[in-house]
């Protein structure tokens, strides 16, 4: 009951905040952005309560259904945003990306399966917590890097025109955005590596092999390697500026394919992120 109320409050708050952020951005109204942050911060507190309540009620890390994945994933994304907001107000532009994304996630999760389910035997492992936690961290960090890439491109485009609005003036210098973008890429890359390794060690116990060339495994490797490539492009070949920003925006696609695309398109993956209520214990 309380969970329902909190979930719907979160959804409404994120909806309003998304609208405000978008309007503030498009019409250059600082005030709207400010109001949005006053909404996001308490909504995040409610979100935290849902997350903790779920964990306490089921006794396991919330990652057992689309709903729980949405709660957890959204929590990390908004958590990052709030953290950035506290550290440097001007960076709230990232919220334009993470708030609507979390809203969509939550909406999708609520639609699918909000009731807690008993944890299937195959998911009872401490590796699960590590694996999922780092997957969420990686996703959150990559998403923010991508958001910063977007900010970079937008500001860069504005700067090449004549007049800059207050909003763009408030966003940090391009160089700073770029460095922060790279910081999040690095963060995501390390978390991603830990996620893959933890997954491999877990797979050995559950399926008997470290690596099974499952579509989800292959795609997570591809996206990790591409992020690795992007690090090479910056560190060794000196890529920077708009080119690097676009790269970071596009690389997020590979992550999205890994997290959602495969589940939708491929049938024979051993990674099912939704419910696991199958009579055959291993499915």
């Amino acid at each position: 009951m309380l969970e329902d109320i909190l979930t719907w409050s979160c959804i409404y708050s994120y909806t309003i905040a998304s609208i405000l952020l978008l309007s503030g951005f498009v019409f250059n109204k600082e005030k709207l952005l400010k109001i949005a942050s006053y909404i996001v911060v308490p909504a995040f507190a409610a979100h935290t309560v849902i997350f903790v309540m779920r964990w306490a009620a089921t006794g396991y890390f919330p990652a057992n259904s689309e709903f729980e994945n949405a709660i957890t994933g959204g929590w990390f994304a908004i958590g990052f945003t709030v953290y950035l907001f506290i550290k440097n107000r001007a960076l709230t532009g990232v919220a334009l990306f993470t708030v609507p994304a979390s809203l969509l996630l939550l909406g999708y999760g609520v639609m699918k399966s909000p009731d807690p389910l008993p944890l299937a035997a195959s998911l009872k492992s401490s590796w699960l917590v590590i694996h999922v936690l780092f997957a969420q961290l990686a996703f959150g960090a990559y998403a923010i890097a991508s958001g910063m890439g977007l900010l970079y491109v937008l500001k860069d485009r504005r700067m090449s025109r004549d007049r800059m609005s207050m909003f763009y003036k408030k966003i940090p210098r391009l160089e700073v955005i770029e460095e922060n973008m790279f910081r999040f890429v690095v963060y995501g890359f390390i978390a991603d590596a830990i996620m893959i390794v933890a997954g491999a060690i877990w797979a050995k116990d559950l399926w008997g092999n470290y690596w099974g060339w499952d579509p989800v495994e292959v795609w997570s490797l591809i996206s990790w390697l591409l992020y690795g490539l992007s690090i090479h492009l910056k560190v060794t070949l000196g890529w920077k500026g708009r080119r690097l920003a676009w790269l970071m925006i596009f690389l997020l696609i590979t992550v999205i394919i890994t997290y959602w695309g495969i589940d939708i398109v491929v049938e024979n993956t051993r990674h099912i992120f939704g419910v696991t209520s199958m009579p055959d214990l291993m499915q």
Partner: peptide
């Protein structure tokens, strides 16, 4: 609630001369 939450297998395993009694579960090979 219709979700398989555990599979407990009581097992005796003999590696060479060493007999070991264990319980296997999913995720606990």
């Amino acid at each position: 609630r219709e979700v398989p939450t555990e599979l407990v297998v009581g097992l005796q395993a003999k590696f060479g001369d060493d007999i070991q009694r264990t319980t296997l579960r999913i995720n606990e090979p």
